[in-house]
Design a protein around this nucleic acid. Structure first.
Length: 895
RNA sequence: GGGCACGUACGUCAAUUGGUAGACAGCCUCCCUUACAAGGAGGAAGUUAGGGGUUCGAGUCCCUUCGUGCCCA
């Protein structure tokens, strides 16, 4: 069989995925071994509105590598896919579509119709990301795909809500919340981001104190909220104001009179030391208000305009316009003291960037006290979840839990899980699984359901168990018993709080299991400018474009080559490296196939190693050592270490040395030699498979001798595929230190000769004679491998002896183990150049020697360092001294 | 304001419990040698941001300065 000269990723990516999927290879049921241990991962469900970005590609690659690796190890694996209904995002899409196509507002068509259209939107556009995941090669079980608003998952949501309500962990109440006036909904603290504004203003307003000729000045960044002031507070210890405490202010622009109160909360150092108190529009003021029993005066509508309570003059005016008006009116009244420039940090809506308004509002909350203790308990008692990398994630997680506040779960949206609470005409609340149940509780009264929906994270917080069939009614399902706890969760830093912590808590609470043992926290993929990718910066890199340009496999293994958790600045040049690597693998296979007549992959060919040539013993030893190391690295989630091992094994050991050493035998049609190289290649492909699924499958199927019979025992009945072969565990008994050291010595010799050739400008076509002075053992080794040495060093003769007998016109070098080589260069040698070359080598060795001598002459070192370490240095020193001595003699001989 | 990371070759990144710094790409020289020029052979290149400390020994641990980034208030 002959392959194309260069690897074309698109051809390989074309058909394998469909075959894998339709053959059921991704399903745990493919595993026929009843006693197989399970391995499960649930995907962090991407938003249905989303399309694939590099962050997904990175996380999916990790999950897929782990899943494929464990599947090959014989585990019953399940990687469960799904999508999230993404409340605000979908709602916004539908609102936009409605406006664009029909110039209508949601209220024009009503809730029912709106929700119908949201579903339609989801059906039409919501599978973009799942299609893209197929391209990635993600080995997820599509038959178990879940959506957070599926019927069963919605049942789970209602069950959880009802239970938490009945236990008093969910409550409704008036609180200061983050209000987005554009989306007209409340946001949780985590959906609010900070933005620094350099051009902010700090406005100083003077309030007249009744029955005096004095005014009191307050500083504020939000002057319009003064319309809702119900007090002015000062620090009780502040001598400037003690005589004013208890007096009353005539609040300008209103007809209200408000008290001056004393409260420790006021920082006498900041501003004027007097603070306006607006309990309905500021969380701190709200607390002060509660302490002093102040009225809570709401002066804003839900769209950010002022309401009637703000006074007739301001009704319907936007909050920022009202701000300017208030300042202007104070100025006219002579009550504006000054306006300072002031850098301020503003809360903004994470999604639409609108400035968030703290506002007093009636909302649903989850009390977090017990749940927090549960999560902290798990961490303290069992160290669960175990974070990779542990630093700093574990600390960030626990610190956040320790300071956890109650969670606002209601959202003023139509798209999502409507809150299962019903009200009668008197406002009594009935929380139930269904309207029917609520009516029964209410004694048959007419009820209306709460208009709000739940925070999207409420349903995704149940993801670890709701996806396995838990509805609250069926609390024991096969999948739940089989696959929970999941083994690892792979996610970004940004949702440790939003999702990881809540899933941990809710899973513990409702099924009394750990949601997952481990958490891998991935880094951020940054744009070429080193900044996070974003539309506004226009520095995004589209994974699909990278797949098209370099191939899926190259993209995957490049992403895997970055240390877990580290941020990565995108760099096309490096992905190109792995595109080249894929081509290298392709061509190495091509070579093996070119001369494979009569040979086939046969694992028995590697079993009886005693009689094999050195190169074979060596590569088998290296292969098994690498397999052991790769497994270890993957177990520690050190994907970059595994990639580095595989890259260098394949390119350096297998291609540069093994193939080159065996080339003559293989070209000559040596069936045994070809069988071995095919077998070693086959094992290497298996190790590469989790990282490069398409390429390895494409090549594996082409190797002679591969068939369904080679699959791992658990998958015996499946069709032929590399993805169900056994992942090489590595055989410690195949590690052959003697062979490795002998081979190393051959490699050293060849490299030294090559070095002489290059530095002395010997034409590549010219053959040389190589003289070697070495011990009897080394000579025997070189004799045994004479043909290979001649070929790779481009020598026409090798002269072995216990000392060198060569003309002066020779280039010389030393080998480790006390050996010495010379290449006679009659007529070709440039003595000046040779002197320079020898001196150069002496200098290098001398630098190391000086350091070694320094260390060994330090009595403290010799005394305190481990003996092996000291011996190691002593041996090294002796070796170098010998080499330097030889090189000096050679140099002197030239002078 | 509080907390946490990070700073290594021109660039992007590695370096197990402290053991004396590596890879890739780039650069220089040579080679289209029948698997691969997306390749092969050889080579040059770092006071590990600066300073101090602990230690026989520090990129790694501690302190400090500078710079960058993130999280929380």
């Amino acid at each position: 069989m002959e392959l194309e000269k260069a690897y074309d990723p698109k051809a390989a990516e074309h058909s394998h995925y469909e075959r894998w999927e339709s053959s059921g290879f991704f399903r745990p049921e493919i595993n026929q071994d009843q006693g197989a241990p399970k391995y499960s991962i649930v995907i962090p469900p991407p938003n249905v509105t989303g399309s694939l970005h590099m962050g997904h590609a990175l996380q999916h690659m990790i999950m897929d590598v782990l899943t494929r690796w464990k599947r090959m190890q014989g585990y019953r694996t399940l990687w469960l896919p799904g999508t999230d209904h993404a409340g605000i995002s979908v709602q916004r899409k539908v609102v936009e579509q409605l406006k664009k196509d029909e110039h209508k507002k949601p209220t024009d068509i009503g809730r029912e119709e709106f929700v119908r259209r949201a579903w339609a939107w989801k059906e039409q556009y919501g599978n973009t990301i799942t299609e893209q995941m197929r391209r990635e090669g993600a080995s997820v079980d599509w038959s178990r795909h879940r959506f957070t608003m599926d019927e069963d998952l919605s049942k789970a949501v209602r069950s959880v809500f009802v239970t938490l309500y009945n236990e008093g962990w969910i409550y409704k109440g008036l609180r200061i919340v983050n209000w987005c006036p554009k989306d007209r909904t409340v946001l949780s603290d985590l959906e609010v981001k900070e933005e620094t504004k350099k051009d902010g203003k700090l406005t100083y307003l003077k309030y007249p104190v009744i029955d005096t000729d004095r005014t009191i000045t307050v500083a504020t960044t939000r002057p319009e909220t003064m319309l809702g002031d119900t007090a002015v507070a000062v620090n009780p210890k502040d001598p400037r104001y003690t005589d004013l405490i208890g007096k009353t202010i005539a609040l300008p622009l209103t007809d209200r009179e408000i008290p001056i109160i004393a409260d420790e909360y006021v920082d006498a150092e900041f501003g004027t030391g007097a603070v306006k108190i607006t309990p309905a529009h500021d969380p701190n003021d709200y607390q002060v208000g509660l302490r002093h029993d102040l009225p809570q005066l709401l002066v804003m509508n839900d769209d950010g305009t002022m309401n009637a309570a703000a006074g007739a003059e301001f009704v319907g005016i936007d909050r920022f316009k009202a701000r300017d008006m208030v300042v202007q009116r104070f100025d006219e009244l002579g009550l504006l003291e000054k306006v300072d420039d002031y850098e301020i940090t503003l809360p903004v809506c994470e999604r639409c960037k609108t400035i968030v308004e703290p506002i007093l509002s009636d909302q649903w909350f989850v009390k977090m006290d017990e749940m927090r203790d549960m999560a902290l308990g798990l961490m303290r008692a069992e160290g669960v979840p175990h974070f990779s990398p542990q630093v700093p994630n574990e600390k960030v997680y626990t610190a956040w839990l320790e300071n956890l506040k109650d969670w606002t779960i209601s959202r003023q949206l139509w798209w999502g899980h409507q809150i299962p609470a019903w009200y009668d005409a008197d406002g009594n609340v009935f929380v139930a699984h269904t309207e029917k149940e609520a009516k029964e509780k209410a004694g048959g009264k007419e009820l209306t359901q709460d208009q709000d929906v739940l925070d999207t994270w409420f349903s995704s917080g149940l993801w670890a168990f709701s996806t396995f069939g838990w509805t609250g009614e069926d609390s024991e399902t096969d999948d739940l018993n089989k696959f929970l706890p999941t083994d690892v969760l792979v996610t970004g830093r940004d949702i440790i709080f939003l999702w990881v912590s809540r899933m941990m808590m809710l899973t513990k609470k409702f099924v009394d299991k750990k949601a997952f043992e481990d958490v891998i926290v991935t880094g951020t993929v940054l744009g070429k400018d080193g900044k996070p990718m974003s539309k506004s910066r226009n520095n995004g890199v589209d994974p699909i474009e990278m797949f098209d340009k370099f191939g899926v496999d190259a993209t995957r293994i490049y992403l895997a080559s970055i240390a877990t958790g580290a941020d990565i600045k995108w760099n096309d040049l490096l992905i190109e490296t792995y595109r080249n690597f894929a081509n290298k693998i392709w061509n190495a296979t091509r070579f093996c196939l070119l001369n494979s007549e009569g040979a086939r992959v046969d694992h028995a060919s590697l079993m009886d190693r005693a009689g094999l040539p050195l190169a074979d013993k060596w590569i088998i030893s290296r292969l098994n050592q690498k397999a052991i190391d790769v497994n270890k690295s993957l177990a520690k989630y050190e994907f970059h270490a595994a990639v580095s091992l595989l890259y260098h094994f394949f390119w350096d050991d297998f291609c540069d040395w093994y193939i080159e050493l065996k080339k003559d035998e293989i070209n000559a049609g040596d069936v045994e030699a070809t069988t071995r190289i095919l077998t070693i290649l086959e094992i290497a492909l298996r190790m590469l498979h989790p990282f490069m699924p398409y390429l390895t499958e494409e090549l594996w199927l082409k190797l002679p001798g591969t068939s369904a019979e080679m699959l791992a025992p658990a998958y015996k009945s499946a069709d032929a595929t590399i993805m169900l072969t056994a992942f090489p565990p590595g055989d410690a008994t195949a590690i052959d230190a003697a062979a490795e050291s002998e081979m190393q010595s051959v490699i050293d010799l060849i490299k030294k000769v090559r070095n002489i050739r290059a530095e002395m400008n010997i034409k590549s076509g010219d053959r040389v004679a190589v003289h070697v002075a070495a011990s009897a053992d080394m000579r025997a080794n070189f004799t045994a491998n004479e043909a290979q040495i001649k070929k790779l060093a481009r020598a026409d003769s090798i002269v072995l002896g216990d000392s060198l007998d060569v003309p002066k016109a020779s280039a010389k070098a030393v080998l480790s183990g006390g050996a010495e080589i010379a290449v006679p260069l009659e007529g070709l040698i440039d003595f000046g150049k040779e002197r320079e070359r020898l001196q150069n080598q002496i200098d290098k060795l001398d630098t190391e020697l000086q350091r070694l001598k320094g260390q060994l002459s330090n009595a403290n070192f010799v005394e305190r360092a481990p003996v092996e370490k000291v011996q190691e240095l002593k041996d090294r020193k002796e070796e170098i001294e010998q080499q330097v001595k030889t090189l000096r003699m050679n140099l002197d001989a030239l002078n």
